[in-house]
């Protein structure tokens, strides 16, 4: 691990699967002998609102709380561009790494024509000027390729694993994913994971 605790945030929209992504990451971390605290929001906010999972990976006995202080995220994994930018502004610094899925989820006010969704390319180029390291992963497309858009979150977990900043062997992730899903969804999710890993390493 590069930093202690290593602070990562899954940012997205309720329903995109950030809770499962953070859970799988936390399980893989524990299997790799690391400690972890996850701060999570679900319930009402899972219905289409901005959601984030704070995952803090550490070693030793010093306790780490569930919320990351502002400006101290080391890695933001964004399931959707707008909310990646939103969370990056709140929790990121120049040194934050970003992995972002470039497929938008439009808020209702945008669909209704009362607000404008910022241009995706401009958002991504702005973010890449703000931070030292940004990678775009076409996670929704890759998830379709793996078998279902529902696996978008697993593609992003694959991207996280591929980046290797947590020093968790990718095999630990694969084992956790294989164990987590029902047998009929296992292969699809492993495919999604591998596609994400490959995408970030290209």
């Amino acid at each position: 691990m590069e930093k202690q605790p290593y602070n990562l945030i899954f940012a997205g929209v309720g329903g995109q699967g950030n809770v499962i992504a953070s859970k799988l990451t936390a399980l893989a971390a524990v299997d790799a002998g690391l400690k972890v605290t996850v701060g999570e929001t679900f319930g009402a906010s899972q219905r289409g609102g901005t959601v984030m999972s704070h995952v803090r990976v550490f070693q030793g006995d010093k306790l780490v709380g569930p919320l990351i202080p502002r400006g101290r995220a080391h890695l933001i994994i964004g399931f959707e561009p707008l909310d990646t930018l939103r969370i990056l502004l709140a929790y990121g610094s120049r040194h934050t790494k970003v992995i972002v899925n470039d497929r938008p989820v439009y808020p209702l006010n945008v669909l209704a024509g009362d607000a404008e969704y910022p241009d995706v390319d401009k958002m991504i180029s702005t973010m890449s000027e703000m931070v030292e390291d940004l990678k775009v992963v076409k996670a929704t497309d890759l998830a379709f390729q793996a078998g279902s858009a529902l696996a978008t979150n697993i593609v992003m977990v694959g991207a996280l694993a591929g980046l290797n900043c947590l020093a968790i062997p990718t095999g630990k992730f694969e084992a956790v994913i294989a164990n987590f899903f029902k047998p009929q969804f296992k292969d699809m999710n492993i495919r999604a994971f591998k596609l994400g890993m490959k995408a970030v390493r290209e």
């Binding site: 909310d83 610094s93 006010n109």
Partner: peptide
């Protein structure tokens, strides 16, 4: 150590995301 919030001004206001039925 925060990011310069002015750098996104050219993108226009970021739309809020209301909760919504699935």
């Amino acid at each position: 150590d925060l990011l310069d919030q002015d750098k996104i001004d050219h993108l226009g206001p970021l739309p809020v995301r209301d909760r919504a039925f699935c």
